[in-house]
Simulated assay, not measured.
Amino acid sequence: MPGIRIYADNACDLDKEYLEELGVKLFYMPVTIKDQTYRDRLTISPPDFYKLISEPGVMPTTAQITPREFKEEFEKALQESNDQIIYIAFSSGLSGTYQSACVARDMLDSPRIMVFDSKSASVGYALTVIRAARAVAAGENLEQVVAAIEDNIRRIEHIFIVGNFDMLKRGGRISSTSATLGNLLNIKLIAHFMDGSIFPLEKVHGLKKAKKRMLEIMAERGVNLKEQLIGISHSNDYEGALELKELIEKRFGCREFVISEIGAAIGAHVGAGTYTIFFLR
């Protein structure tokens, strides 16, 4: 009986071992730092990535996965079995990887290949991947798995404290003046995702107030939070992520969490010192 293969990419910020437990196969986006190219979480770990970009003047760059890479893997999967192939992609608002996968799908012209734009990043993206993998493991059919994916894509929320204003300045999200003032005055920018892209939401003085405000926004937007799988990601501060988890547990009674460190694919956009919470609205 044909099965369902779930694919994702490393922008979901989940460790390889956990993805293997879920039965999810991974594509890797390259990141270049000081003329050296790495594969995030494959040839460079998150701690090593943040150590490298902490050096003055070092700005990492990322590249999309190529259509050729997708075509080779999809073609192999088609030949190996009659499984349905589902690739859930890093947000098209931040990378061309989704478009690359669509090109590969169209080249192979097989109804067994489905490509979804998660419109998400980091553990927010991971929550959709996890839901899809759990649906497959539970024996749900293709229609049910697709419905679960599309539901998460519609409802996922990303609320985060930006670690480095310079990263957003480079991406054109804020002005040079705002970036300089923010870094100097300990202003924390709370941002969110809209249709798969990053947009500033509010500015708050100090990290403690910013975390408190994140939970207020979570309360305003979230639905039935106690029963949800909640995502938390951080860049170079696991203790800070645990503090967020405790605050969420205390306020909303949430019991199930996924906590992961932001890797190079996302860290290249937001920098060290970023904290993010993910949930469904």
Rank of each mutant, 00 (worst) to 15 (best):
S45P: 14
L168A: 07
A179F: 11
G163I: 03
G222K: 04
S110C: 03
T180V: 14
I277R: 03
P46E: 06
T32G: 04
D117G: 12
E246N: 10
D15K: 14
N152K: 10
V146L: 07
E143H: 07
M167C: 15
L242Q: 13
D166V: 08
T43G: 05
K211C: 13
I153C: 10
N164F: 09
E21S: 14
Q84T: 11
D166C: 12
G182Y: 02
K211I: 07
I33R: 00
S95Y: 00
Y275C: 05
M167Y: 15
V103L: 14
P2D: 04
G23A: 12
E220R: 15
E261R: 01
I248A: 03
E140P: 03
D237L: 13
Y125V: 05
H192E: 13
L280N: 04
Y238S: 15
D195F: 08
G182D: 11
A179K: 08
T274C: 08
V204P: 14
E75P: 00
L168K: 11
A126C: 05
R170Y: 10
A126I: 06
P46T: 04
Q84E: 14
S197M: 15
N152V: 07
A63P: 01
V145D: 06
C254R: 02
G124S: 15
F70C: 12
A241K: 03
M107I: 13
E17P: 10
A265C: 13
L127T: 00
N236Q: 15
F116W: 00
I262G: 01
A272E: 08
V123F: 06
Y38L: 01
V123I: 15
D15S: 12
Y125K: 09
A138I: 00
V123M: 11
I53G: 05
C254A: 12
I198C: 14
S100A: 03
E72K: 14
S120C: 08
A135Y: 03
I4T: 02
S176T: 15
E239G: 05
G57T: 07
Y238L: 15
F160P: 03
A77F: 09
K211G: 05
S175W: 11
E75N: 02
G263T: 02
A101K: 05
R131P: 02
F70V: 05
F27C: 00
A8F: 07
A272M: 05
L26T: 14
K203G: 09
G57E: 11
K119A: 14
A191E: 04
S95W: 01
R41A: 10
I153A: 10
V31A: 08
A121D: 08
I6S: 07
G3N: 05
A272F: 03
A148H: 10
E75G: 02
V136R: 03
S178C: 09
F278R: 06
A241S: 09
P47G: 09
